[in-house]
Simulated scan of single mutants.
Amino acid sequence: MVRGWHGWLGTFNGVVLITVVVLPLAALAVWALARRRRAAGTTSAWRTSLADVGIVYGTVPWVWMIMLPGEQAGAVSGRVTVVPLRDLLTIFSDGGPLTATVQVVGNLLVFAALGFFAPLRFPALASVPRILVLAAGCSVLVETAQYVLRLDRVSSVDDVLLNAAGAGLAALASRRWWRDTPDTSTDRRPQPAPAVGR
């Protein structure tokens, strides 16, 4: 039973399979949230519901995968790389182009859903620089957790850069819909009617 659960929860393939299996549940969550919000009179109920579920569904599996412990988790000290591009060059030289491509694409996708949906959900985040800062901050937290928890993974500045870049690119991809984002920051109180001259 333990081995079976580990196959589902403790491997990359297991996480991917779970992500695919729960896709219908994510769609159902969007529908239920939108219906509830429409009944409450919320504007853009479908948009906000899709964004809420999209952020969670598109981010949690990636964070889950990069937090999976390595074979020597707890037995070795955390490793840190703070020189930009050093890890990428090492992967290219040791693992080859295919391994490096998988590594780069995977890191670009970690916070891509956050970058795509956050500006649609939160008007204050409808800015590429803000998304870059948010994604970089989240990435630093994840890399720090990897180090502190001694997961036998490398905490690298390259991962932070790629995670932030992926979120920024995803934000650019959703930019055409930013202008339709409801602006909840403006004062929507009724304005007095202009005085009519006599």
Rank of each mutant, 00 (worst) to 15 (best):
I91N: 14
V110N: 08
G95H: 15
G54A: 08
A75M: 09
V22D: 01
L120D: 12
V30K: 00
S93I: 08
R38G: 05
S93Q: 10
R47D: 04
G70I: 10
V83Q: 05
G58A: 12
V60P: 08
T81F: 01
L88V: 14
A73T: 06
S127E: 14
G54R: 14
F111S: 13
P84H: 01
G70N: 08
G78W: 05
A124S: 11
A45G: 01
G96D: 09
P61M: 10
L33D: 00
M67G: 06
A45Q: 00
P97K: 03
G41T: 02
A40V: 13
I66D: 03
A39I: 00
A27T: 02
A40P: 00
V82Q: 00
A112T: 14
R37S: 09
W31A: 04
R37T: 07
A112H: 09
A75S: 10
T101M: 09
W64R: 05
L28A: 13
R37E: 12
L68T: 00
G106R: 12
L33Q: 03
L109W: 08
L98D: 05
R47L: 02
P24T: 03
S44T: 03
V63S: 01
V30T: 01
G106Q: 06
T48P: 00
S127N: 05
R47T: 09
F122N: 08
A40H: 02
W64F: 02
G58I: 14
L109N: 06
L88N: 11
A45C: 03
A75K: 06
S127M: 11
R38Q: 15
F92P: 00
F116W: 15
T81E: 08
A34E: 13
L33C: 03
F122G: 07
V60A: 15
V22R: 05
P97S: 02
A26L: 11
N107T: 11
S49E: 00
A118P: 12
L33M: 07
A39Q: 13
L50C: 07
T81D: 08
Q72K: 10
A124K: 08
A126T: 09
A75L: 13
R38P: 02
D87Y: 04
A126L: 05
A112F: 15
G96F: 02
A126E: 01
G74Y: 01
L89D: 13
R37G: 07
V56D: 08
P97A: 06
A26R: 03
A112C: 15
A118C: 12
R121H: 14
L89C: 11
